[in-house]
Design a protein around this nucleic acid. Structure first.
Lengths: 251, 251
DNA sequence: CGTTACGTTGAAAGCTTTCAAGCATCGTGG
DNA sequence: CCACGATGCTTGAAAGCTTTCAACGTAACG
């Protein structure tokens, strides 16, 4: 269940990174691109259910998710699990570890993943030689903070139904910005257990809550995935405003 | 209620900052100190209850809290409030705003505050000329992330009693590291409404929960403050491990 | 074809909120 | 000086939300 395939070497050169072509990501100078490309040590493939990062360990690497869906979580000793946030293409993984030593959360794959691998020990070079990229890293960290703030508001003060609506609207919005929504309806690759562990609810109550959203025509649950039918309806129900579009960095 | 007194000019030179002398903070080189000192534009005083930062606004400044207690929060339209985290001496305020434009949370004083004021627009100079300080800013951001991760685990998966114990142990631990606990018992300047809005509970249930902690001899509630009698007991009850001591930066 | 993982439901038990009321302290105006 | 309103802390009881317990259906897999 925690299998990560060994690095399969370089496949996608950064200059031709399919993500980088998306309008969400800011343009990089040729020099920046050269550094990032050199910074990248290779790629890692992980299958669904694989643990990419483990709570309490130190990793010599940072990752950027190239494709797939993953999630960050923490657990209590008796097994209670809390999902902290989701990881989508373009997101940086493992920054916290370069800060405090051991990383304090785990990361698990919801789908097969491809990750770009960066050596943590060269982060210093990045900060020294590329202040723009250094600022980008801070930017990404502050963005994560903003998302966590919203999750906290949700867990603390929204009702179960609002929380579920918020989560699905949030994931829809993020997926859309990295081109995963397309014209067709978006399928989010989750089980109801994941939703429960994100919302802080029991699996039974989560089921009943999702049923309610489905009965209102907002979503459809099938297989191991959630189909978003009405993102605006979800947003309205959760009283959540999508953050404004900002070009963001891709490291 | 949202009164912030105008800048009262420089009082404490960074080189003689009383915080900097604490063992928690890492040593700064003379050059770094010179930059920070120059970066600091002045001081701001805020009284209890004052709003230092308002959700949805843009601020030209960043702050470091020099003394006092404050908290960050968000609210829903109907007034439901969620406290996201607490701000203690040495903490940076407003970084999120320099990233995404508008800041997405508010900050309010729990006690009278003294804040160091920094112009946001010089952040670029900092990143360009002082990679070590730039890394410090990222470090602080990642530290905040780690705290938010823990709060999420707490809100999502801990019982009311565990949550309360966690919160108080957490605040005790943070206060201790900036020299606020001393030999005497620590008084945390909170009302039960603050605790309720942090834990995602109603005020009534919060009262009953705090009563239970008090009956177990872990805390004492008096006035508008919580006295921590047994931090270890609280930690054990919450199943929470204090993060390891790390020297941290002070900007 | 038994096993496992995932989704679904009903009902009882338990936790939390809401409603109501009361007490204490503090600062203010009469 | 004292009444009064505002704020903060307490408690009991009823209502409501959520969890737990139990059971069942389906699909995928070896």
């Amino acid at each position: 269940m925690s299998l990560v395939l060994p690095s399969s070497g370089r496949r996608v050169p950064c200059e031709q990174c399919p993500l980088r072509a998306l309008p969400t990501f800011r343009d990089f100078s040729a020099e920046e691109l050269r550094f990032v490309s050199d910074f990248k040590r290779g790629e890692l493939v992980a299958e669904t259910g694989a643990t990419v990062v483990s709570e309490g360990t130190k990793s010599a690497h940072l990752y950027t998710l190239l494709s797939g869906w993953a999630f960050r979580f923490k657990t209590l000793l008796d097994g209670r699990r809390q999902i902290l946030n989701y990881v989508l293409p373009g997101d940086l993984i493992g920054l916290q570890g370069s800060i405090e030593g051991e990383i304090e959360h785990s990361v698990e794959a919801l789908t097969p993943l491809i990750l770009c691998v960066f050596p943590r020990n060269r982060l210093h070079d990045l900060f020294k030689g590329y202040p723009g990229l250094a600022f980008d890293i801070t930017w990404l960290s502050a963005r994560e903070e903003r998302m966590l703030d919203e999750h906290l508001l949700s867990l603390g003060r929204r009702t179960a139904l609002e929380r579920a609506a918020y989560l699905l609207a949030f994931l829809h919005s993020r997926a859309e910005r990295v081109g995963l929504a397309g014209d067709k309806l978006l399928h989010i690759p989750l089980t109801q257990q994941h939703v429960a562990d994100t919302l802080g609810l029991s699996i039974v109550h989560t089921n009943k809550t999702l049923r309610k959203l489905a009965s209102q025509g907002l979503i459809n649950w099938l297989d191991r995935s959630c189909v978003i039918l009405d993102p605006d309806g979800l947003r309205k129900l959760a009283e959540w405003e999508q953050p404004k579009e900002h070009k963001r960095p891709l490291i």
